[in-house]
Design a protein around this nucleic acid. Structure first.
Lengths: 160, 160
DNA sequence: CGTTCATTTGCAATTTTGTTTCATTGGAGC
DNA sequence: GCTCCAATGAAACAAAATTGCAAATGAACG
């Protein structure tokens, strides 16, 4: 997979295929072909190309966290003290390495990082804060938001 | 798919299978079988069961937003004025319906909702704020964070 | 300790799906 | 109008998923 996504030319077929795949990537290519008016091989070639170009990043099963005992979703805004390139890179790799951190973004605004964390219990979250925030002397402060309802969860993007 | 996930008994096999699937759900069942020491049909039955139980929510392709011209990721904390059940439900369905809103959580803390938004440009975001926030008289205030780097993005959960 | 019953498994056969081959089509440029 | 190039569909082929079935496993009970 090529890493930088320059400006891959995606036509209408590609976009329709993507729309289907990001809803259900187990859809048979023949079915996709019927939906977009293309033969199965044509669909397959386009999918293969988009994978190689990095348009399609991954193909995954989405697991219900509750089913595996990870029932609490938490947002954290983290503000750091020093924002040198080195310190930021350090924080990024630390956050990226934590299994409990499902998503991590480096942002502008009143915080530096926003984290999405999944844990089995608040006790686990508390332990995590000790390890990740109190145990890191470049963290100035952090603010916690506990999710009561995961209203809409996904990684779908508008393609049309 | 059964909606409520009661207490599905997941054994070690199931968890190992899930770990593989949420990394790459195109892995052949035979390969999974080799990895977990089970025959392909056994793997397939377990996957089928976990789909029916709702342990596996969906199977999707992950698309690189930039590749489809959606290059800006934005976090928004939304605070509402009235938190009656009715008003909250109203807000939930409104946010859930917006294609630009990739994720929406109802949270405790200094905000009521946290949104993850994907748009092609800041102009689009500005238009969206007018429609969604300024055009909604139950929104007290909202705070915007623009993502400079998507350090870690996914929906994987710890299964081990 | 042995029997029974329900569940899960592996193997083999079948069906479905993915992949490759190859001749054809439809333009773009000359 | 001709050539070249890229993309396509039909058919053949390969690989994977799914099903049927008999055997193995394990727990409950006598």
């Amino acid at each position: 997979m090529r890493n930088p996504v320059h400006q891959p030319h995606l036509d209408d077929f590609d976009r329709k295929i993507l729309a289907i795949l990001q809803r259900d990537n187990m859809t048979p290519q023949r079915t996709i072909g019927d939906a977009v008016n293309l033969s199965a091989p044509a669909v397959q070639r386009r999918i293969k190309r988009m994978r190689e170009e990095g348009v399609i990043r991954a193909d995954v099963s989405i697991i219900e966290p509750q089913a595996v005992g990870q029932s609490i979703t938490i947002f954290v805004e983290v503000e750091v003290i020093s924002e040198t390139a080195e310190q930021i890179e350090q924080a990024k790799s630390e956050f990226a390495a934590a299994a409990e951190i499902q998503q991590c973004y480096y942002v502008t605004g009143e915080a530096d990082f926003i984290l999405v964390i999944i844990v089995p219990s608040m006790a686990d979250y508390e332990a995590l804060t000790r390890r990740l925030f109190f145990g890191n002397n470049n963290v100035k402060r952090f603010r916690t938001f506990v999710a009561m309802d995961r209203v809409k969860v996904g990684l779908g993007v508008p393609v049309g």
